[in-house]
Design a protein around this nucleic acid. Structure first.
Length: 399
DNA sequence: AACACAACCAACCGCTTCGAC
DNA sequence: CGTCGAAGCGGTTGGTTGTGT
């Protein structure tokens, strides 16, 4: 960017640059007593020689009391990576899933740490796919990959909607509202019966809880004709005062393709603030295998791979340990995740548990020569999609 | 000790979106 | 419906700090 012309700070005498402790104190004291009100008028009232915008940024990115500072935890890193895979550079949306972290902080952390780490692993930080992957056939993307992509799109939409919910909940601090999805027909609808993998893990527990008292409002199905899969939809929610308003309004989920699918969402305002807060929690802490992100943190002991916390570091990506499945390694475990297992089987036509044959190339990139790249991609995207499924047991349903 | 380079991150700019009028 | 101000958002900059030579 060239030639900064601070449009909002054109007024002569307004200070720019780093904030001093005295300025921080003035801003804090004023907001604690009066709230921020109008940012434009705040600086003069607070005795600050700053523009309102600068004050707002300082408050939202640094001074706010609910901000957590300091190192990002492994779980936070995983969440950022996986949410980024779904949402892209929508930092504010990502931030809503990481409590007490600002979008600015997440963005900085991504640009300075995570993006580089993924690049070193041979994963394109934009597409989140192995750079040299040959996952697509010569004729183009496979059906499975296509479906995976579609699902990722849906989840992206849904997560964005969640982010909006969380944002809106903050704006509605004095009003409670509830959201309720209703389903087309009943839980015995064709869509709902389509597959135990979808039904049982990805949606049913959540949608069942919120569908009590359902009315006859239409709901959606998402269908993958190739696999005879359909999803109970309730996938996307855009909820804000002016966008959703009345009961049972169609929100407009989904959009994209010629694929046979439809989504209708019925929403009822009936969600209290605590529920909304929990939405923030519900999608945290996803599981990209540590061994992928921190291969040097693992070492072999006998027949097992062990995790060494001291060895884990951002730069620790040079030597790759083999991908193994072990209690000590954070991989999706067989049998404890119906959806992931089922979906994995759907997209990759071989034993999903056989992850022991792998290697890396000399330049440190994951290779596809013997399936390593595929394995990583599989786990990567499985875990991204597992996001939906990762609600802690104490968290109320998202939908 | 001095310098060069890299990494980090707070703060900035400008575009977009939203809401009031 | 159009206009305008405020706020939100993402990309980028540049000062500071850390590390290597």
């Amino acid at each position: 960017m060239t030639g900064r012309s601070a449009a909002c700070c054109e007024k002569v005498g307004l200070k720019k640059g780093p904030w001093t402790p005295e300025e921080d104190q003035k801003l804090l004291a004023y907001i604690e007593e009066h709230g921020h009100g109008s940012w434009r008028s705040l600086p003069s009232k607070a005795g600050l020689q700053r523009c309102g915008k600068s004050c707002r940024l300082r408050w939202t990115n640094y001074l706010r009391p609910d901000i957590k500072r300091g190192k990002f935890s492994l779980q936070e890193e995983q969440s950022i990576i996986q949410l980024h895979a779904l949402l892209g550079n929508r930092w504010s949306a990502i931030a809503t899933h990481l409590p007490k972290r600002t979008d600015n902080e997440i963005k900085n952390y991504w640009n300075t740490h995570l993006k580089k780490r993924l690049a070193k692993l041979g994963i394109d930080p934009v597409t989140h796919k192995p750079k040299n992957a040959t996952l697509s056939s010569i004729d183009g993307p496979s059906k499975n990959e296509s479906n995976l992509s579609h699902m990722a799109q849906w989840e992206s939409t849904r997560l964005e909607a969640e982010a909006r919910l969380v944002r809106d909940s903050k704006l509605r601090s004095h009003s409670s509202f509830k959201i309720q999805l209703t389903q087309l027909g009943s839980s015995s609808s064709a869509a709902y019966q389509a597959g135990p993998k979808w039904h049982g893990t990805m949606w049913s527990s959540k949608s069942n809880k919120v569908s009590a008292g359902r009315d006859d409002s239409p709901t959606s199905t998402m269908t993958f004709p190739d696999q005879n899969l359909s999803l109970p939809a309730a996938l996307a929610v855009g909820l804000s005062d002016h966008h959703t308003a009345s009961n049972n309004e169609f929100i407009g989920a989904g959009s994209s393709s010629s694929h046979e699918r439809s989504a209708v969402l019925a929403v009822k305002e009936e969600r209290n603030e605590e529920e909304l807060k929990s939405i923030g929690k519900s999608s945290h802490f996803l599981n990209i295998p540590d061994i992928v992100l921190f291969p040097n943190a693992y070492h072999h002991e006998g027949t097992q791979w062990k995790y060494d916390h001291a060895s884990k570091s951002a730069g620790d990506v040079g030597n790759h340990a083999p991908m193994v499945e072990d209690d000590n390694v954070n991989l999706p475990a067989a049998g404890n995740n119906n959806f992931i297992n089922g979906f994995t089987e759907l997209i990759i036509n071989h034993d999903p548990h056989n992850t022991t044959t792998s290697s890396s190339s000399d330049n440190g990139e994951w290779t596809d020569d013997n399936g390593y790249g595929q394995e990583i991609s599989k786990y990567y995207w499985n875990n991204i999609l597992d996001l939906v499924n990762s609600s802690p047991s104490d968290a109320p349903p998202v939908f």
